[in-house]
Design a protein around this nucleic acid. Structure first.
Ligand SMILES: [Mn+2]
Ligand SMILES: [Mn+2]
Ligand SMILES: [Zn+2]
Ligand SMILES: [Zn+2]
Lengths: 139, 139
DNA sequence: ATCCTTATTGATAATGTATTTCATTATCAT
DNA sequence: ATGATAATGAAATACATTATCAATAAGGAT
């Protein structure tokens, strides 16, 4: 709702044009609470914009990803899914029942990473952390 | 070396037959310190067993994965790579320079997960943690 | 050692996903 | 309203994975 407009504004600021297909995809992605595969986005978006092409879905997801609005999410059963991006340092918790994805923050691995880093000689630049389980509704 | 035989024994115990192609793949996977894609395994294994088929690589990796001997590794630039499995609760640290993968243990997220769990109503069943950086040799 | 059952293999075909190409269409600054 | 050009979608292409199937080979039984 509110995010949709903000996304479209940013898209425009960055030199993109606002079009029907893009509007449909942005509406979807900005308001989805689960990670979606390109094909899934395609299917959902065609409800709003029937002549949507799958190629446009790929291109738009790529564009939104460059703008930092969506990001790729890896899951055990699908590694090319997209979800609205995190705000700052957040990680994902995903429900294996319904697919609901929720960002959380507050993890503090810095001390631990420091320790591992010292012991191993590795220079750690980033980390992935993801929690898998069942949401309130699914258990 | 030692692991190779152990893997083959387990494979046999579970009703599998020991064959040339499997021996070549097991030797590779049991001794590799980096995650390998099926095609990469294929190329390397053909050195030992020239008439190896790519399909056999897929099938053998799947089998070894069912036996808990290898596991799939996700990386920013490739999500279908395989590596010898962890021993118990371990996570991976991967060098973005050379691909070297090292397991570490000692992370303790239980208190944090407990907190997130309470706040969100999620029942957390497992977690992914992965560190990305540069190994001693690569920086 | 030989035989026999059947697991395993690899060539091939089929599938599904992602990318490239290109003529047509739509956006938006003027 | 017009025109430059960004964006689109159909079609073609590339690529990774899976399914099919006849030939082969492993290993238990004899
Ligand atoms: Mn992945
Ligand atoms: Mn852990
Ligand atoms: Zn759920
Ligand atoms: Zn390295």
């Amino acid at each position: 709702m509110a995010d949709t407009e903000r996304w479209l504004e940013l898209l425009e600021e960055k030199g993109g044009r606002i079009t029907g297909p893009r509007r449909a995809i942005v509406e979807l992605m900005a308001n989805s609470d689960r990670a979606l595969s390109p094909v899934h986005v395609f299917d959902l978006a065609r409800a709003k914009y029937p002549k949507m092409g799958l190629v446009t879905v790929y291109r738009t997801l790529e564009f939104l990803s460059e703008l930092g609005l969506v990001e790729r999410v890896h899951q055990p059963d699908g590694c090319h899914m997209y979800l609205r991006a995190a705000n700052g340092h957040e990680h994902l918790m995903i429900c294996s029942g319904c697919g609901k994805a929720v960002y959380f923050s507050g993890d503090d691995l810095s001390a631990f990473i420091e320790k591992i880093s010292k012991e191993s000689g590795f220079l750690i630049q980033s980390h992935w952390l993801q929690l898998h389980g069942l949401c309130k509704e699914c258990h």
